[in-house]
């Protein structure tokens, strides 16, 4: 008897919800192809019951489906001819930069040889008469596969080189710029990344290495890595990073959110179930702004968000303000954002 009663209550509530959904909400979902079966049924019912709604829907649908003709590209043939002319230019410059890289490689090898004589005290680097391979990402991040199956994503304007003896006994690569490494496990052949006189050695793990303003930042996502340079030799655990200053030779280890260091790969950050206050802290770190929350009620609100790293903190908060019900204000140079109750 009790169960029966519950069921009745449930059904009544359900039908109340759908019947009451306003016409525009239902119609928009159906036009956009986003409606559930239940919503489709609800609109159908609504249209059957009222001629007025029925005519209204037909009109809106006809407008929605109407063809919008444009004459923006006046001559498609001309457009394509011009486009393929540009494409050929790009192809040519790609070839040239390949040649330039080859010259640079030759110059690089010569420099290494010279350096070997002068600064062999630091570590011995295997020289091999074999080939040097170079990966270079230009204007956008790009992912490359190494012969051992390890993957490296290079940030724009970054290069990675390795020798043809890669993988024989060791897996040594040299990086400039920034790279995220997903290294295939192989305990017998250590994998090492050399950058600006420092080395990061691993067996199989995922980590990010970056050179920026005379600092080397190695951040570990998973596994373990050993970072060493002239006066530093340290083991990192997941979620830790070492910042090494190449000038002062000093270093510091701190805990980080690894996602922040790898966001450049996808150009996107995702957070599940974090409070608004935590999100504000993250935004402060990423965008170097100060966020002041005066609306205390909202601070503890949990949410799941996903945003592009190229957006500004203001854009992101702006997108959330209606949902959470707060208002935003900026100081003159947009370095401080204040959040108040709406």
């Amino acid at each position: 008897m009790g169960d029966f009663f519950m069921e009745r209550v449930f059904i009544v509530r359900k039908s109340f919800q759908t019947m009451d959904a306003p016409f525009s909400t239902l119609a928009s979902k159906i036009l956009a192809g986003e409606a559930s079966d239940e919503e489709k049924r609800a609109l159908k019912q609504l249209l059957l019951e009222s001629d007025e709604y029925s005519l209204m829907y037909s009109r809106i649908k006809e407008y929605w489906d109407a063809e919008v003709n444009t004459s923006l590209i006046s001559d498609r043939e001309v457009f394509e001819t011009e486009l393929f002319r540009q494409l050929n230019l790009v192809k040519k410059s790609e070839k040239q930069s390949g040649m330039r890289k080859l010259y640079r490689k030759i110059a690089g090898v010569a420099a290494i040889l010279l350096c070997m004589v002068a600064v062999s005290f630091f570590y011995l680097h295997q020289i091999n008469s074999g080939h040097t391979y170079t990966f270079a990402a230009q204007n956008e991040p790009a992912e490359y596969l190494l012969p051992d199956g390890s993957a490296v994503t290079l940030n724009k304007n970054s290069t990675l080189t390795y020798q043809s003896n890669f993988g024989k006994r060791r897996r040594d690569v040299r990086l400039s710029g920034e790279g995220f490494f997903d290294v295939t496990k192989d305990a017998t052949r250590p994998f090492s990344v050399e950058i600006a006189g420092t080395k990061t050695e691993v067996l199989g793990t995922r980590f990010n290495v970056k050179e920026q303003n005379n600092r080397i930042i190695t951040s570990l996502v998973e596994g373990s890595v050993r970072f060493y340079s002239q006066n530093c030799n340290t083991l990192l655990s997941p979620g830790e990073e070492v910042i090494y200053h190449t000038r002062s030779k000093s270093y510091k280890i701190s805990r980080i959110d690894p996602q922040l260091r790898t966001a450049w790969i996808l150009g996107r950050l995702n957070y599940d179930n974090i409070t608004f206050e935590e999100l504000a802290e993250k935004l402060e770190q990423i965008y170097r702004v100060k966020i002041e929350i005066n609306a205390k009620k909202i601070a503890g609100h949990t949410l799941s968000v996903s945003f592009l790293t190229e957006e500004t903190a203001g854009d992101i908060l702006d997108a959330l303000k209606d949902e959470l019900g707060f208002s935003l204000s900026f100081n003159a140079d947009s370095t401080r954002i204040t959040i108040d109750n709406q």
Partner: peptide, 23 residues
């Protein structure tokens, strides 16, 4: 670069605007 919910609301708002003008 906004949430799915935001798009849903925006499209519903646009449709309600159309309805208003047809009326």
């Amino acid at each position: 670069g906004v949430s799915v919910k935001t798009i849903e609301k925006q499209i519903a708002f646009a449709v309600s605007k159309l309805k208003e003008h047809i009326e």
